[in-house]
């Protein structure tokens, strides 16, 4: 365990800036998100609540140029965009968002390796910061980890007042700390303080879901049209819960054409709540709202676990906190019926 005084952190960030673009949580754009660190702001060292825009935006860009294409006679020449992904260091990422990133890594390196995403991931360092003030919408502790989880970052910082205790998790993390000014060995007293801070943070997460029960019930709910109609009634089909979800990874692909027939191909976030989702290639198979809401919940709690043996939700609570109608996934999960619907009630 290492330790760094809060006042020494800016100097460390400056040092890291030599090799990385350093990002840190900031509200300066008008919304809290990971922002290129300006060398000045240190507010996040004392108060670092979950950002509105999840850090997935640093890996899965909302505007990602995939390649340029040029029409020459009857054929096209493609030029991949970008080249090497930028080296970025995300300072102050929360355990829920780091876990979410680990979760969507699985899909991006599954059957098809998505190098736009993976390239950014490979060139990124995650400096985690334990979450000390979870929101009332947070429920991470129900999902097998907690606000101090260090497994998914390169190093993990725990706030002990005027300093952070640092847990070196990966070799990358170790390297970054080696010989860094202001970084000292943590004392037994420091680690004790850190353990207390971690326990205090976990105790603040009061919203709970019962994962075991959900795993049993969710497959049975698939055909329960009545249930889904009821719980989807107030959904307005906007994109907030998916766009702000750290584990939602759908994207749409669009070409921007010039007159000559040349242009560029881009991708941007897409959302299964939109009535026009997948309309471009064909039709949206989920024309009714209840089917879309079911898809969203099942994707996270049924389909993803089937494929990757992990629930695609980390309890960050953004979908609850930011929803304009307070559609609350924890309430939906808690109200899943205990049994399958009778045959007559099926869709």
């Amino acid at each position: 365990m290492k330790k760094i005084k809060k006042q020494d952190v800016p100097a460390l960030l400056v040092k890291w800036q030599q090799d990385f673009t350093v990002f840190a949580p900031s509200k300066k754009s008008g919304v809290s998100r990971m922002e290129v660190w300006d060398g000045q702001d240190t507010a996040f060292l004392d108060r670092n609540r979950n950002t509105v825009i999840p850090p997935k935006a640093n890996f899965l860009l909302n505007i990602e140029k995939m390649f340029d294409f040029r029409k020459e006679g009857g054929s096209y020449t493609l030029e991949p965009a970008g080249g090497e992904a930028p080296r970025q260091l995300l300072f102050g990422i929360h355990p829920c968002d780091a876990r979410a990133t680990a979760i969507i890594d699985m899909v991006f390196k599954d059957a098809y390796e998505d190098n736009y995403y993976l390239g950014r991931r490979r060139n990124s360092v995650l400096v985690g910061m334990g979450c000390t003030s979870p929101y009332d919408s947070c429920f991470c502790t129900s999902l097998g980890f907690g606000p101090a989880e260090a497994a998914d970052v390169d190093m993990m910082l725990t706030d002990i007042g005027d300093a952070f205790v640092i847990e070196e998790v990966t070799d990358k993390g170790k390297e970054l700390l080696a010989g860094a000014e202001g970084v000292t060995e943590a004392t037994a007293d420091d680690t004790k303080k850190a353990d207390a801070a971690k326990a205090a943070a976990a105790a603040k997460v009061t919203r709970k879901i019962n994962v075991e029960e959900i795993r049993k019930r969710i497959p049975l709910s698939f055909d329960d049209k009545k249930f889904w109609e009821k719980v989807s009634a107030k959904c307005v089909s906007c994109g907030i819960c998916t766009f702000l979800c750290p584990t939602c990874y759908c994207f749409d692909i669009n070409d921007e054409m010039l007159k000559s027939g040349s242009g560029a191909r881009y991708r941007n976030w897409d959302c299964c709540s939109f009535p026009l989702y997948t309309k471009m290639p064909a039709e949206n198979p989920r024309a009714e709202k209840w089917r879309r809401v079911r898809q969203k919940v099942h994707h996270k709690y049924a389909f993803y676990p089937e494929l990757f043996n992990i629930i695609a939700c980390t309890g960050c609570g953004r979908c609850i906190r930011q929803c304009p109608v307070n559609w609350d996934i924890t309430q939906i999960l808690a109200s899943l019926p205990a049994g399958a619907p009778a045959a007559a009630e099926k869709k």
Partner: peptide
């Protein structure tokens, strides 16, 4: 500057 932040979630339209 304001619209640089827009993520096109269409919540404004949907509500």
């Amino acid at each position: 500057s304001e619209f640089s932040r827009c993520i096109r979630c269409y919540a404004c339209r949907q509500v």
